[in-house]
């Protein structure tokens, strides 16, 4: 297992790896795929009471890696394999290397599952188009946009695979490059930004409609928001601060009226109220996540996800 999860520096050979480009690697891959698929199909026949332990085991082992890493002695940054020996240190090194292998696993699995999401999108809109239900034209548009983006995205990517070609394309973009650029930067990114900026309108209308002085709480919220906004407006802050400093404090930087400078008020609120308030909420949320993590890791919850 050592060499599997802490992959050796090339071209070191071990039982888990193979030289790239050889037929050995393809044969191994094919065999392992068959084994994997057989395991998958085998799971279909697992009796009901055997199912929960299987899921629990996978979840537990996945979490165990990081939990073990936390409690296992960790080496200082200066330690290298040359200057540090001993079995404890070896395992520590193994943990360091293995993180690089274990880390991306969640990532890879999530990537495989993305297909399921796309499948959901395709069935909903495909059905609507096929049955010519209301708004079928828009569903068709969605599907067409999807495939156009897919087509040009991969065409452009394949063109860039060859390094010589890539350098040339950087100078004069190809048709595919242009098309992908238009679809991605010209449209998708701009629509992202446009949708994001809509929030400004919504904030404005929500503030007009909902921000009323009707309870202690809303008054406090509104008052603080006002002070915060004013302190962000330099054109107000600078003359106000100067007025306080020069006229009221008469230039004395230790005078107490200096506290009335807008930046001082907002900094005081931020240091002594806002920071501890948010910190207190986050302490709670942090403990909530810790407890939830524990319940998931040990599969303690019945009902819901780990039923």
């Amino acid at each position: 297992m050592m060499n599997l999860l802490a992959q050796a520096t090339a071209p070191e050979r071990n039982i888990w790896n193979a030289t790239p480009g050889t037929s050995e690697i393809w044969i191994k891959m094919a065999l392992l795929l068959v084994v994997g698929l057989a395991f998958m199909i085998g799971l279909v026949f697992v009796p009901t009471r055997g199912r929960r332990p299987i899921v629990m085991t996978f979840t537990f082992l996945a979490g165990l890696f990081y939990m073990a890493q936390l409690v296992w002695p960790q080496l200082p940054q200066a330690a290298t394999r040359e200057n540090t020996q001993g079995p404890v240190a070896q395992v520590s090194f193994w943990f360091q290397d293995a993180t690089a292998v274990v880390g991306p696993i969640a990532n890879i699995l999530t990537a495989f599952i993305l297909g399921l999401g796309i499948y959901s999108l395709l069935t909903i809109h495909g059905k609507r188009f096929a049955r010519l239900q209301k708004d079928w034209q828009f569903s068709l548009l969605l599907l067409v946009s999807l495939f156009v983006m897919l087509f040009f995205g991969y065409w452009d990517w394949i063109q860039g695979l060859n390094p010589e070609n890539a350098a040339k394309l950087a100078e004069t973009p190809s048709f595919a490059g242009r098309a992908k650029d238009l679809l991605f930067e010209g449209m998708l990114q701009v629509m992202d930004a446009a949708m994001f900026s809509l929030i400004a309108f919504f904030i404005f209308s929500a503030a007009y409609r909902a921000f009323r002085i009707r309870s202690v709480e809303s008054t406090i919220l509104l008052g603080t928001a006002f002070i915060m906004m004013l302190s962000l407006m330099g054109a107000l802050v600078v003359p106000w601060n100067n007025f306080i400093q020069e006229s009221l404090a008469k230039g004395d930087s230790n005078a107490w009226v200096n506290f009335l400078r807008l930046t001082d008020i907002s900094a005081w609120l931020s240091d002594n109220i806002q920071t501890p308030a948010i910190r207190a909420v986050n302490f709670g949320v942090g403990i909530g996540a810790l407890a939830m993590g524990l319940r998931i890791w040990l599969s303690l919850e019945r009902g819901g996800v780990s039923a």
């Binding site: 404005f204 503030a207 921000f211 009323r212 006002f226 906004m229 004013l230 962000l232 407006m233």
Partner: peptide, 22 residues
Amino acid sequence: YFALHTAMGLLILAVIVGNVGT
């Protein structure tokens, strides 16, 4: 920065108008 000033000024004005209305 200038546009931020006018926009935030407008928001403050809007909240005040809303509260006066109420």
